[in-house]
Design a protein around this nucleic acid. Structure first.
Length: 562
RNA sequence: UGGGCGGUCGACUAAUGGUAGGUCAAGUGCCUUUGGAGCACUUUGUCUAGGUUCGAAUCCUAGCCGCCCAGCCA
């Protein structure tokens, strides 16, 4: 097979070990997982790691995975996000077994809350959020109990019912679990279960004006779905005792939570809040700007889902906080595209090349291999003629040491064309080279010299008369610092934005086979990088995004000599 | 400072008391009709100090360092 599907998850990780053991010793008979995003933003590469774990591990053990939207906060959540999340999960290559919303469980949650009240385990508090905060205590000092903590059962039930009926304004009262204000675990200091929010919910409309907090809804939602292994990120480890407390009080199905480390990437921000800020303030064109680490952004950038999965498998999952090199992600993108992308020739910064001894008006169709990594990809024909465009970078009037490409008197190979030798240049008034003249050796057709002589460089080209025009967008890192959140006092992370993260090249020249290329199609522009057709393309005006550049040894050498 | 969770090459990750291995990055060479790809090789690591053991990255003790928690966000 040309493109073997890489493993969805790494050969081993501690979560797999736990699941295997749970199945072996009978703690659970099956595997049920869930991916529980809040629909308040777009999914990003960090979520991809969680998705690969949630869906990948369940798939591996013959289990099931639900997609559940944790929509407990009507003020932040929108249908737009629900739609994008589903699209992104599918694009990554996964399909859910059940599609649920935490809001599906609002009635059950309410009923259970009443049950806890009647059991003396929850109470309505009249304190405001500020007052609750003042009494919470600190990391080292216990909190104080609310004066409303011990009011009567019936009064609690009545008040809670009236909260639901909408008798009180936002924030006037809350329902709190009655646990332990002196607990060293802040989550156990009578956490809020319900707050009053008179806001319309994207699914339940105006039916409710009290909404469960995440802590109250999450564990019970898992339990209702019979989730066996509930994976989440490390910061929720402190909440586990609370979830267990609820489950024990209610005597419901015990889901097991397993925390793993969040993905961090160099030069990348993975905070929904900051990503939203980039969008709102117009630093990027939208959630799907190809520079964004969102799934929709990297999709538009041209990253293949297989590459994302291979990357997630490679980084694994553990419990140590770290930061993965962005280069690791790019490696998997290149590795995937190298095997699958068709090669074409495109000249981004055109320089005219005239072959003086090539017959005027003659056109030859040269055979070009579509993908040297995949014989099945076949070949195509590329028109060759007397006037070509070559890459501006591929000619130097005064070549530095180690530069192999074209320069006066030097012979190079035109890929799939002929050997040409530079004879002269034409300059404009300012002294820059605008045209290069050469002669070609007719015996080298296709790029082979019968006499066996070698050239040190092969450069790409397009025939001036046959090339089609196109726009190419060159993307670079969005931030200049490995840790974009590292800023001087009083500055914002936006100060680290890379002003050169986008360079738009107009007037690029593409080989004619690219005419009609469809949005999303991926190619390798030989010697330059991987590019994909952007959504902004129209039939007559192609736009390409640079997905990732090819590794460039020469650039490295040149940089070192400076 | 109370509680929770962690510390293995520069980065990510294996080794589950028995040879510290893989991937990325970096470097060197080979090869090449992409300065791509591929191939070969190289450099660098168990936080510290004690202890248990024939044997410790792994177990114990004590330190040190890092991350998380004081939203009616998730």
């Amino acid at each position: 097979m040309v493109n073997p599907e890489p493993a969805t998850v790494s050969a081993t990780n501690f979560i797999r070990d736990i699941i295997s053991e749970d199945l072996r010793n009978g703690k659970y008979q099956h595997v049920q997982t869930r991916f529980p995003p809040e629909p308040n933003g777009y999914l990003h590469i960090g979520h991809a790691k969680a998705i690969c774990l949630d869906f990948g591990l369940a798939r591996e053990f013959g289990g099931r995975t639900n997609l559940r939207f944790d929509d407990t906060n009507p003020e932040k959540e929108e249908t737009e996000y629900v739609d994008s999340i589903q699209e992104d999960v599918r694009w990554l290559g996964f399909e859910w077994d059940g599609l649920y919303y935490a809001s599906d469980y609002f009635d059950q949650l309410y009923e259970w809350a009443v049950q806890l009240i009647r059991a003396g385990k929850a109470y309505v508090d009249d304190l405001t959020a500020d007052e609750v905060r003042q009494r919470r205590g600190t990391l080292t000092e216990p909190g104080q109990e609310s004066p409303y903590r011990n009011r009567g059962l019936e009064e609690n039930v009545d008040l809670f019912e009236r909260m639901k009926q909408g008798e009180f304004p936002n924030g006037a009262r809350s329902l709190r679990a009655k646990i332990d204000m002196a607990s060293p675990n802040m989550n156990m200091r009578d956490p809020v279960m319900y707050r009053i929010v008179h806001a319309s919910h994207h699914r339940t409309g105006n039916r409710w004006c009290i909404y469960p907090t995440y802590d109250w809804a999450h564990g019970q939602s898992d339990s209702l779905e019979r989730v066996t292994h509930s994976m989440c990120t490390l910061e929720f480890a402190d909440h586990q005792p609370l979830y267990k407390w609820f489950i024990e009080q209610l005597r419901i199905f015990p889901s097991q939570q397993i925390e793993f480390d969040r993905l961090n990437l160099t030069y990348t921000l993975l905070s929904k809040r900051k990503l939203l800020q980039l969008v709102r303030e117009g630093h990027v064109s939208g959630w799907d700007d190809p520079r964004m680490p969102t799934i929709s952004g990297i999709r538009r950038r041209g990253y293949p889902p297989q590459a994302i999965r291979a990357f997630c498998a490679a980084i694994g999952a553990g419990r140590t906080n770290g930061t993965t090199d962005f280069a690791m992600l790019e490696h998997f993108v290149r590795e995937d595209l190298n095997r699958r992308a068709s090669r074409v020739m495109a000249v981004l910064r055109p320089l005219k090349l005239v072959i003086d001894n090539y017959p005027e008006g003659q056109v030859e169709e040269m055979d070009a291999i579509n993908n040297p990594e995949d014989a099945a990809a076949g070949s195509r024909r590329v028109p060759f003629s007397r006037v070509l465009y070559i890459e501006n970078d591929d000619f130097r009037e005064a070549p530095p040491k180690g530069y192999y490409r074209l320069s006066p008197g030097r012979e190079v190979r035109l890929r799939y064309g002929y050997f040409v030798t530079c004879t002269s240049v034409v300059k404009d008034a300012s002294g820059s080279v605008v045209e290069v003249h050469c002669t070609y050796d007719p015996a080298t057709r296709g790029g082979n010299a019968p006499d066996g002589r070698k050239v040190k460089a092969t450069i790409h080209w397009v025939s001036a008369a046959h090339a089609i025009a196109g726009e190419v967008r060159l993307y670079d890192k969005l931030f200049t610092k490995p840790d974009p959140s590292e800023v001087e006092e009083g500055r914002e992370f936006t100060a680290n934005l890379n002003p050169e993260s986008l360079a738009v090249l107009d007037g690029c020249r593409l080989e004619p086979s690219l005419a009609g290329a469809q949005p999303g199609a991926r190619y390798q522009f030989e010697r330059l990088g991987y590019f994909c057709v952007d959504l902004d393309s129209t039939p007559g005006a192609l736009v390409f995004n640079r997905t990732v550049a090819l590794k460039d040894t020469w650039a490295k050498v040149e940089k070192k000599s400076h």
